[in-house]
């Protein structure tokens, strides 16, 4: 290697140097890395407290080198609310999956968002319950096979998948809501920008922020990692259009 070459891509400080429990090809790792990079870049690690969900990322507190709380299933937004209200000077984020946030924790997320709690939610949507072994999630696509809809999701019985970014954007209070994906390098770069924007808005004490990230689950989808990327692109992207659903606007006169 040339003497003058620099390391231009390396493990962020906030991400601990440990091997995660995630399956090969699971994009949780990409999202972890981006959150860590943002905390590094904004210099927030030392005053951050994360909230871990129940789901595959239940152990994410082992990977981020920040203070962390482990919440009951779905209650991460309530913990984050309590924490941030007592310590508005700290940076708080919840890291939640689709079962955690869009099913059991739907009440908590809607109200936290609607109160405009100044924390950041990283919502990882992979259309399936990962931790418990591939059951139907509120975001499971029509016709998608899971262990609790073995014939494919029948929307006449279970309704249409819930689009969280759109749903929360219908509220007047939340300040910044964007849906991104992490299946291609270009999408990953855009996702990073969104995460960075969310934490920046929080740092500046502006508003509630949520980034919905379309993610893969090769194991429960029954795909190779490569196939999972393609499945996300072909199926999830259609149902969950990417984009910024709610952009922060400075209140007038400020």
């Amino acid at each position: 290697m040339a003497v003058d070459s620099k390391t231009v891509f390396d493990r962020p400080v906030t991400l601990r140097d440990v091997v995660t429990h995630y399956c090969p090809g699971c994009t949780h790792g990409v999202i972890h890395r981006m959150v860590s990079e943002v905390l590094d870049e904004l210099g927030l690690r030392e005053r951050t407290c994360g909230v871990a969900p129940v789901g595959c990322s239940v152990l994410c507190y082992n990977y981020f080198d920040t203070d962390f709380m482990e919440a009951p299933h779905g209650r991460a937004p309530a913990l984050a609310t309590g924490f941030k209200r007592m310590r508005p000077d700290m940076i708080v984020f919840t890291y939640q999956g689709d079962g955690d946030l869009a099913s059991i924790g739907m009440g908590e997320i809607i109200h936290a968002a609607n109160r405009g709690e100044k924390f950041t939610t990283i919502f990882v949507n992979n259309a399936v319950y990962g931790m418990t072994g591939g059951q139907m999630a509120p975001t499971t696509l029509p016709g998608q096979i899971t262990t609790t809809c073995p014939m494919g999701r029948d929307t006449s019985l279970t309704g249409e998948p819930i689009r969280i970014a759109e749903l929360l954007s219908a509220l007047a209070t939340p300040g910044y809501i964007e849906r991104v994906a992490v299946h291609t390098p270009a999408h990953i770069l855009k996702a990073k920008k969104a995460i960075r924007k969310a934490f920046t808005l929080q740092r500046d004490n502006k508003c509630y922020t949520l980034v919905e990230v379309l993610s893969t689950c090769p194991t429960n989808w029954g795909n190779t990692p490569g196939e999972a990327i393609e499945w996300l692109d072909e199926n999830m992207m259609k149902y969950f259009p990417l984009g910024c659903y709610k952009d922060y606007v400075e209140p007038e006169g400020s």
Binding site: M1, D4, S5, V8, D10, R11, Y22, T27, G29, P185
Partner: peptide, 22 residues
């Protein structure tokens, strides 16, 4: 180009570069 590192879910890839490419 760092694309491999960007998509790696396990942060297993370090990239070195210099000059214009950087």
């Amino acid at each position: 180009c760092r694309i491999c590192a960007l998509v790696c879910p396990d942060v297993a890839i370090e990239v070195h570069a210099h000059g214009l490419i950087f």
